[in-house]
């Protein structure tokens, strides 16, 4: 069993809603509401869910772009809940992020060299010759030609830009990379290229990924373990097989049914099946969600498989 590198315990992110004359806090948006997760060295954890389910917020908390309201972030057995603590241990040297929009994540005024060298200069300063060597090595790793080093982001295609983003994330030899929908802005042929490439560097460098996506096909291709998020809570987590072969929660079933199938001859059946699952989701919503529409706590089903199931189905 590989070592655990990151653990989240009861993580909550609430955004206050202010209203009224005195601008008092009247309510909270519960973007993330009590999430427990752990990540092992070298594994890929997929985080799926519909838009607004809080998966991106969770990713941002992990890289430190967003503050948590409550809970613990434990990185290599160290509690790193505040930004000051994270800065002290140079947390972001080890935990990096790949962004969804490759264009807006690269400063249009900086050359590729400056973009990739930025984390190196901050976390791992070296003399200019070594720095130059390292940047060129990174370009090599992501498969971009050396001559691009002094070009600007707008001179690249989407797939190339995403690789530049990956090169920047790799610059400081991180142990965990949070990939927030890294391929959803790319067309399909380039998606496969970038994904396979991410897998390749994972094998070579032993990086863990937290792979945030709403595209289950991509998740199935990429991940070892999957956590399904809905309304800021996990509704099901387990290995890839647990989730894809044996989904227990109605929301997971619904998400899986939404994967488009290209089999034309079975179109009618597929549609009927999808309809039926939608129907089941609507009918049994009250069983699986509490009075406020929040998912129930997770119940352990097997060694790896957890789901937010109601009490009675546990007995069945």
């Amino acid at each position: 069993m590989a070592d655990e590198i990151l653990r989240l315990e009861g993580l909550k992110v609430h955004y206050p809603i202010r209203s009224g004359f005195w601008n008092r806090v009247t309510d909270n948006v519960k973007a993330v509401d009590g999430v427990d997760l752990n990540l092992k060295q070298g594994e890929t954890l997929g985080l799926v869910g519909e838009s607004g389910s809080g998966k991106s917020t969770l990713g941002k908390v992990i890289v430190g772009l967003e503050d948590m309201t409550e809970g613990d972030l434990i990185y290599q057995n160290e509690d790193l809940n505040s930004a000051a603590e994270r800065r002290r241990v140079k947390y972001n040297k080890d935990v990096q992020m790949i962004f969804q929009d490759s264009l807006s994540s690269l400063n249009p005024r900086k050359t590729i060299y400056e973009i990739i060298a930025e984390p190196i200069r901050n976390f791992d300063p070296m003399d200019p010759v070594d720095e130059d060597k390292r940047v060129r090595e990174l370009l090599d790793i992501v498969g971009l030609p050396q001559r691009t080093v002094f070009q600007y982001p707008f001179q690249f295609s989407g797939g190339q830009r995403q690789r530049i983003g990956i090169a920047r994330a790799l610059a400081t030899n991180p142990r965990l990379i949070v990939a927030d929908e890294p391929v959803s802005a790319l067309d399909l042929s380039v998606q496969a290229q970038v994904l396979n490439f991410m897998k390749k560097i994972q094998k070579e460098l032993g990086i863990s990924y937290l792979f945030i996506s709403h595209d289950l096909g991509v998740v199935r291709h990429m991940t070892d373990n999957i956590a399904v998020m809905h309304h800021g809570r996990l509704v099901e987590k387990g290995t890839r097989e647990d989730i894809f072969e044996n989904p227990q929660h109605i929301y997971t079933k619904r998400l899986l049914a939404a994967i488009p199938s290209v089999n034309v001859s079975e179109r009618a059946e597929n549609r009927a099946r999808r309809k039926q699952i939608e129907q089941e989701f609507d009918d049994r919503f009250n069983e699986f969600y509490d009075g406020e529409g929040m998912p129930l706590p997770l119940v352990q089903l097997s060694e790896t498989h957890y789901a937010a199931l109601p009490k009675q189905s546990e007995k069945e």
Binding site: G64, N107, E118, R168
Partner: peptide
């Protein structure tokens, strides 16, 4: 924009 976030995670 994301490049600001990227700079933050790069420790700038």
């Amino acid at each position: 924009r994301d490049y600001v976030k990227a700079s933050k995670t790069s420790g700038t």
